[in-house]
Amino acid sequence: MNRRLLLAAPFGVALLGGGAFYAMLRGLQTGSFDPRGVPSQLIGKPLPEFQLPGFSRADVLARKRPVIINFFASWCVPCVDEAPTLMALHQRGVPIWGIAYKDKPAATQGFLARHGNPFTNLASDEPGLVAIDWGVTGVPETYLIDAQGIVQWRFVGPLPDAAVDGLSKLVAS
């Protein structure tokens, strides 16, 4: 019996490995697993103080509801890729607040006119200083802030379509 168990062990190991790889692949698709990512230092911490033309930290906290904050720019090609995903989230009633990073307001308006405006509120971080405080590594970058103003999740790069369902459930509830 022991011998049989021993000979079945490789199968067990392969089964576990296969399961784990499946979980990783799912994670890659939904954005919850990113082997390349550098973790954000903000996760689990309160939102840093900021004051921008458009909105400030106080405005985010005053909502007392979860909100998604998206850094984008008119000059950023992956942001064009991301636009339909953000629009899909917007149509599901997910509040997305946008921060235009190192972008001229006129250019930002042109971008939103071309690709649709998914943002409930729009702020401009033309000097890019708030992005430094947040530890933004590039655009687009997306943050999920909970009702208490704690940063719960961050995603680098264009949001994958597969993330729409999960995010709308999280934020709508």
Partner: peptide
Amino acid sequence: ILGLLGLLIGGSLLLFA
């Protein structure tokens, strides 16, 4: 590919067991 590997490797290890 993972499904394919699962069938090939998993199947052969099951046969082995």
